[in-house]
Nucleic acid binder design. Structure first.
Length: 391
DNA sequence: CATTGTGTTGAG
DNA sequence: TCAACACAATGG
C-alpha cells in the first residue's frame, strides 16, 4: 500500500502559542495521562535480550512470557529489543515516528508529532502550555515544516537540532514575526547539519571602500531589498544577521539602512571579515541561504574574478588554504553537484528535490529505504488556515 | 543476525 | 483512535 500522503489538510494553524520548551530542558509538566502504574519496571524487562520476559512466579509453567511492557505514555509502544517506538495515527493510518532508547524520548516525539498533526490543543504526554517566547518559535517552526519533514526529523532524532538551529538565526526582521517565507515550492528534505542545500542569493565584487577603512559593505539595494528586507522599524537601527562561512564559522554583522547614503550596509563585524579573509577590492563576496526551513545564511568569497572559468577552482584552493580548521566539522567544501549550479548571473540553483520515490536524504547517512509510508508526503511550507476537528 | 516498523486485530 | 502482538523486511 502506499499511503502516499499524509496530507497537510490539518495543518496546525491555530494561532496561539503553547507548544513547549526545548525538550532538552524538559521542564515538562507531569504526564497528562499517567496510567496507573508507573512502576511497571517491576516486571523485569530484559534490556537487550531479543525478547523480553516477565519473571512471574505465579503463572509458573509459562514463566516466560514474551509480553512487552506497555508504555504509560500515549503514542509509545514497546519494541522487542527493549527500546520504544513512537507512533501517531491519522486518517486510520499509523505514522511511525521512530524508535528510541528512552520511553520519554518516544513520548516527546509523539508530542511533537501530535502538535504538528493536530494543533496545539492536541493531547500530549508532556507539552506544557507554556507561553514563553520559545513556544512561539517552536510553533512557527512546526508550521513551517510539512508533517513529513517533522516526522523525518523525529525518526532521525534531529528534531531538536533543527529547532535549535532555526532559533539561532533569526535576525531578519527583528520584529519577531516570521512566516515561512522562502523560495516558493522549494524544500530540502534530509537537511542534515553538514552539507545542506542552499540557494545563491547574490554576489558582489567588493569595492575599495568595502574593504577599506569605512568598515562597511554596501549591499546593492536591489539585492538588499529582495533578500534582506528590513522591517520599517528597523531600517535605521538595523538588525544583527548571522552568516556562516565555508569553515563553519559564524559571522555576525549589523545590517542597516543608511539614510544619508540611501544604502543598505553591513557594518559592525564586517571589518573583521575583511581582515580575516584578507579581502581585496575586486574580490567577490557571495551570499547564500539554506533552502531548508532554518534559513541559515551563508557568506563566502572568492578571488577577484580574473578568468571566467577556473575561478571556481581557485576559489576552492584558496579557501582550503586560508581556512585550515573546517575539516573537523566535515563542512569543508560543501560543493556538491546538486547545489549551486550557476556561479554568476541569475539566482539559479538546484536542490536535491524529491517529488518522487525515495528522496528523503540522498546525501547524508541515515535512512535510505525504509521510508515507505511517508515517502510521498506533501512537502510544503504553507499553512493553510484550516479548522481542525475535521478528523 | 538484530531491529525496525508494518500488517493486523480487537478494544475503546 | 490506539495499542498489542506477530513477524516480514531491512540493513549491517
Amino acid at each position: 500500500m502506499d499511503n502516499s500522503s499524509i496530507d497537510e489538510s490539518t495543518t496546525s494553524e491555530n494561532s496561539f502559542a503553547s507548544s513547549a520548551a526545548p525538550a532538552s530542558l524538559s521542564n515538562m509538566t507531569l504526564p497528562v495521562n499517567i496510567k496507573s502504574s508507573p512502576e511497571q519496571q517491576s516486571l523485569c524487562r530484559v534490556g537487550s535480550g531479543a525478547s523480553s520476559m516477565i519473571i512471574d512466579a505465579e503463572v509458573g509453567v509459562e514463566a516466560e512470557s514474551r509480553k512487552l511492557p506497555s508504555s504509560r505514555f500515549k503514542g509509545v509502544v514497546p519494541q522487542p529489543n527493549g527500546r520504544w517506538g513512537a507512533q501517531i495515527y491519522e486518517k486510520h493510518q499509523r505514522v511511525w515516528l521512530g524508535t528510541f532508547n528512552e520511553e520519554e524520548e518516544a513520548a516527546r516525539a509523539y508530542d511533537i508529532a501530535a502538535q504538528r498533526f493536530r494543533g496545539r490543543d492536541a493531547v500530549t504526554n508532556f507539552k506544557p502550555l507554556n507561553e514563553a517566547e520559545e513556544d512561539d518559535v517552536e510553533a512557527a517552526f512546526l508550521s513551517c515544516h510539512s508533517k513529513a519533514e517533522i516526522v523525518d526529523m523525529l525518526r532521525k532524532h534531529t528534531y531538536n537540532d533543527e529547532l535549535e538551529q532555526s532559533k539561532r538565526n533569526y535576525g531578519l526582521d527583528g520584529n519577531g514575526k516570521k512566516g515561512c517565507k522562502g523560495i516558493a515550492g522549494l524544500h530540502s528534505f534530509g537537511s542534515q547539519r553538514t552539507t545542506k542545500a542552499r540557494e545563491q542569493l547574490f554576489e558582489k565584487a567588493v569595492t575599495p571602500s568595502d574593504v577599506g577603512k569605512l568598515n562597511r559593505l554596501v549591499i546593492p539595494k536591489q539585492h538588499a531589498e529582495k533578500h534582506f528586507p528590513l522591517q520599517s522599524g528597523n531600517t535605521s537601527k538595523g538588525v544583527l544577521l548571522n552568516f556562516e562561512d565555508m569553515g563553519g564559522k559564524v559571522w555576525r554583522f549589523r545590517y542597516s539602512y543608511w539614510n544619508s547614503s540611501q544604502s543598505y550596509v553591513l557594518t559592525k563585524g564586517w571589518s573583521r571579515f575583511v581582515k580575516e579573509k584578507n579581502l581585496k577590492a575586486g574580490d567577490i563576496v557571495s551570499f547564500q541561504r539554506s533552502t531548508g526551513a532554518d534559513k541559515q545564511l551563508y557568506i563566502d568569497w572568492k578571488p577577484r574574478n580574473g578568468a571566467d572559468k577556473q575561478l571556481y577552482i581557485d576559489w576552492k584552493q584558496r579557501n582550503g588554504a586560508a581556512e585550515a580548521a573546517p575539516v573537523a566539522a566535515g563542512i569543508s567544501i560543501p560543493i556538491q553537484p546538486v547545489q549551486m549550479v550557476r556561479l554568476f548571473g541569475v539566482n539559479i540553483f538546484k536542490v536535491p528535490l524529491p517529488v518522487n520515490g525515495v528522496v528523503m536524504d540522498s546525501n547524508s547517512s541515515c535512512s535510505g529505504k525504509r521510508v515507505r509510508g511517508m515517502e510521498l508526503l506533501g512537502l510544503e511550507c504553507s499553512k493553510k488556515p484550516r479548522a481542525i476537528g475535521a478528523l
